[in-house]
Structures are given as structure tokens and as C-alpha cells.
Amino acid sequence: MNQATPSWRAELHALTQDWLQRIALAADLAGLRELEVASVGKKGDVTALMRRVGTLPPEERRDYGAAAGDVRTQVDQALADRKTALEQAILDAELADDTFDETVPGLLPKRGHPHPLSLVQAEIESVFSSMGFHVLDYPEVESEFDNFEALNIPSWHPARDMQDTFWLQDGHLLRTHTSSGQVRAMQTFAPPFRAVFPGKVYRYEATDASHEHTFHQVEGLLVDRHVSVAHLLDSMRTLLSAILKTDVTVRLRPGYFPFVEPGFELDIQCRVCGGKGCSVCKQSGWLELLPCGLVHPHVLRAGGLDPEEWQGWAFGLGLSRLVMMRFGVPDVRLLLSGDTRFLTQF
């Protein structure tokens, strides 16, 4: 109906084309955001169009309003489309990128190395602890009483030669076995109780690949009423199976230790040959593992207990030897060498 198109139509058209083109050319999201502010932001060009409606003749206002709204719609749409496209492009770029190197080493500091004796000792302590044993610790410099006298080894006893002793100038000694804690434990705990006490022991002897003047043992002690060899057998089999992580067959044979009666050497069936006989077990089918026995009544008395009422069993296990067996250590002297070339293997 109107022959002359109002001048604003061309202007709106040009403006729209200009914005659509600029939006289409936006290179990244930050640039797009700037265009958004400059176009449809509070002070933007497109926003400004709506404010111009009042300046037009009333008959044109409706058309102008519609046209300006249309511009706004087109620009909004273009912004949204461009945003989607740009985001997709980033996503595509990340997914297409092949430069990430997953093989670079981890960042946490390297761990250190526990001593193998600590490892095995901790395992043993946890096995015993889970079975109700206290884990105790007793002095290394000991009295003659606790190391010998209380264990039914009076001064004239030949067994004192069996364990060559380091004597101190003050009259004490370096304990020759962890059994020195037996009477201490009896004096500390009200029976019934069960306990293990691991630690360093000392023997006055020359060293070689299988002898060391300082080594580690763990002592086990149980005190209860009506303790029998049958209980000792059961406990030893259960505990050794847990420690050696396999079902073991054990046998007891007579062994002499003054602080137990009866006293035993406990053998385990050779795990290399299954008892048939091989070079490891010297063809006997059995490996000597530890001495044990029922606690001698003299020892119970020295511990302040009445042997009529209380009995017990005890064993002594060589920790150093167990470590050597477990890890194939060829020379016992490596254990206390402080040589990190050895220690960093664990």
C-alpha cells in the first residue's frame, strides 16, 4: 500500500546483515561474547533499535517495532548458533588432539624401604595379635637372673656354655635369647595370658655367612590352666601355617632346653620335596624350625605362678633365619650391614 519504503527498512536490513556477518566470523567464545555485548547488550546496537520507536511517526511504529523485534530475533539466533558451533569446535579439537603423553612418570615422591626384619616381624606380630597375643618388648641388656637363673639355668649348668654370652663390666649381660622376657611377662600379666616378644639377641661367637653375633628372635609364651602337648601342637601348626602362608605339617621330637619340660625340636615337613627327601632337607623330609616345649615348673615359680594351677607353652623362633628363608638372603651379615644396595630391595 505504501509506495515508498521508509528509510529505516534498508537501514535495519543493512544492520542485520552486518551483525550476522560479524557473528559468523567470530573466532572464539571471547570474541563472540564481545559481539554479544555490542549487539544485544544493554548498550548494544540492536538493543538501541527498540528505543528509536518513539521517534517515528505513529503509523510506522507498529511495523518498525515488528521489524526491530525481528532483527533482535535473528541476531540472538545467530549468536546462539555461533556459540554452539564454537563450543563444538573446541570439543572436537580436544578430542582430536593426540599430543598428550600418558607415559610420563608419576609425581608422588618415591617411597623408601622398610628393613626386611621389620617386614617379617610386623607380619608375625599381626598374626599373633589377631589370635589374642600381647606384643611385648623387653630389655636387651639383661640381668643374669632373667636370662639364666629364672630359666632354670643355674650358674653351674652346662647350658650356659651352649649360649656363649657377652658379659658387661657392670655384671649384666646382653640377652642370649628372647626367653629372658618369659619371667618378666609372668610377673606383669595375670594368667591366663599369651604374648610374643620379638627382639635383638646377642651371642659371643665368630661370624660367617650363617652366624652373626647379633640377630633377631621372637619368643612366644602362653600361660593357662591344663595346658598340654596337644595344645602346643595345635597352636604351632595354626600359627606356623599363618606365618608361612601355607598349611604346614609339623612334628615334635625330643629336644633339651632347661626352661621347658618336656622340650622339643619342632620340624616342619620340607616344602620343597613334600617330605620325600631332597638336598634342602638333607634327604630327611623335615626341616628343623624352632625349639619349643611346656614351660618348666621352675620357670613358672620364678614368674610367681603356682605350677599346680598354671602351665604354659613357649617357643623361640629365629626371625633372622625366617627372613633369610623368605627372601633367599645368602649371608646373615647383610641384615645388619646398613648397606642400602641390599636394603633398597625390600
Binding site: E125, F128, S129, G132, F133, H134, V135, L136, D137, P192, F193, R194, A195, L222, D224, V227, S228, V229, A230, H231, L233, D234, S235, R237, T238, R251, L252, R253, F264
Partner: peptide, 20 residues
């Protein structure tokens, strides 16, 4: 013959063990 002795689990009142 110790090998003929049938092993038995000790009966001992259970009590949480001490760890100093």
C-alpha cells in the same frame, strides 16, 4: 609318639591383646 597326639585348640578366655 608325639605324632600320635591329636592336637587341640587351647581354651583361653579371649581378651583384646595389648600393644604397648
Amino acid at each position: 609318639g608325639y605324632q600320635r597326639i591329636v592336637s587341640k585348640a587351647p581354651l583361653i578366655p579371649s581378651r583384646p591383646p595389648e600393644l604397648p
